[in-house]
Design a binder for these strands. Structure first.
Lengths: 243, 243
DNA sequence: CGAAGAATTGAGTCCTATCAAATGCCGTGG
DNA sequence: CCACGGCATTTGATAGGACTCAATTCTTCG
């Protein structure tokens, strides 16, 4: 199961600056799609491709936000911590996703790489200037923000009012849909994140997540495969998630 | 305890169009602050003051979004429902708050009045046109959206990882802060919404909310008063909420 | 004053968390 | 190649916090 191999295979060796935005695999699904071909070189001037090995930190909650990112390949987790160590993952960023919508002085959450991540980094000041100059980009940014807000509201529903099984099923369907937009639609859903990550996303413990996976597997609703799951009974899952 | 009497007292009798945006009590905290005095008449042309008695519906999830609103007085609840009736309140809208950030075809949640609500209604098309024309307004809208997103992420942390007592305490502190920005800072926190609303906001049951209030009152952390609570031990509450 | 809804209180249960142990999975190095 | 060690995951047993069901008590308002 390497459904996301296309993205995972992206470069990170040649280091240096953004090897041409025009060829960027995620451009059309990213904020950059707001720019005409003519403006792309503006981006290239400020962009810089950076990579992070698995578990590396892109930035931390409270840090001054000196840059924004678009994920080029790999998956990152966005999370908040309580002083006593409890963690809530507020989202997973997939290729094409934008980090830094808030445009605030300090980051509201921490982000680190789940698997090796390649991202396009823009200095915040230069980026803010571009946004001020091109209302079109701001418009696109606002679209992203409201989309995120919608996702956040759906997730509140999930966290506050759904059972463990419903949470896991909704999570799997959600991941499937997100991969489908990037890759090819597949009943194989890649899950690069750990069970602990899933638990912290769904407001559960790792044990409950694990038990729920095995229960779904016993039901023949899913099959657990290396690095992911295969969905065997979509209809049943949709029913559970709608419930 | 009528800490919000200033707003609750706002007009709704004379009906008709927006009695001058320049005099609007919430203008400076609303999206409208993005407009110069010179542009305010543009708003007045499209705005229309509307009022809703307690429990009335402003709009429902899935409805075509034909208007956006700024709350002028009163409190509204934003919520999502599951087919089986479970409800998650995703936020409370106070005076100055904006409804319709998404600018999408269909509303992503339902909204109804907790107590009598007065709102400033803008037809969506006219509003969208204004936004397209004035990047400054879009910028302000985006500020609101990212602020909402930050609140939503904090709320995910609360829903997923906090205990019942922490939830209630964080809720009270949050409401206190929001009223403080409108009204005068006070240890009296108005709570126009019902216990059931609070429960559906915090991902708890009404009984658990009630028991937690009683426990906090026994502790002398709060005093329960008609239409709200009085916070008697802020320091203790901050500790619980930080934890 | 009395009815209807809201809030509180009580008793018992259940879902999920907690604590603990076993198993599986890899990369390392002999 | 395979044994070893460390980490992730699964499985088991038990406990507890919040839920459910049910009964009062309190408010509000006609």
């Amino acid at each position: 199961m390497k459904a996301h191999a296309t993205y995972a295979g992206a470069s990170c060796h040649h280091g240096q600056a953004g090897e041409s935005c025009a060829n960027c695999k995620v451009r059309l699904v990213s904020v950059c799609s707001a720019l005409e071909a003519a403006d792309l070189h503006l981006l290239e001037e400020m962009a810089r491709s950076v990579c992070f090995p698995a578990k590396a930190t892109l930035f931390s909650q409270g840090d001054p936000a000196d840059a924004v990112y678009t994920i080029t390949s790999g998956v990152a987790r966005l999370y908040k911590l309580l002083p006593d160590g409890r963690r809530q993952i507020v989202g997973f960023a997939l290729p094409g996703d934008f980090l830094g919508l808030a445009m605030q002085e300090a980051n509201g959450f921490s982000v680190d790489a789940v698997d090796p991540v390649v991202a396009c980094r823009f200095p915040r000041k230069a980026y803010a200037a571009l946004v001020d100059e091109k209302p079109h980009v701001l418009h696109r940014l606002h679209e992203f923000a409201t989309h995120e807000l919608t996702l956040a509201q759906d997730h509140m529903m999930l966290l506050g009012r759904r059972t463990a099984e419903e949470k896991v099923v909704a999570f799997l369907l959600g991941m499937r849909e997100r991969w489908a937009k990037l890759d090819r639609l597949s009943i194989n859903v890649p899950l690069p994140m750990s069970r602990q990550d899933i638990a912290d996303f769904l407001g559960l413990t790792i044990e409950t997540v694990s038990r729920t996976f095995t229960k779904l597997a016993r039901d023949k609703t899913i099959v657990i495969v290396p690095d992911g799951v295969r969905l065997m009974n979509l209809e049943h899952m949709e029913t559970l998630a709608a419930a």
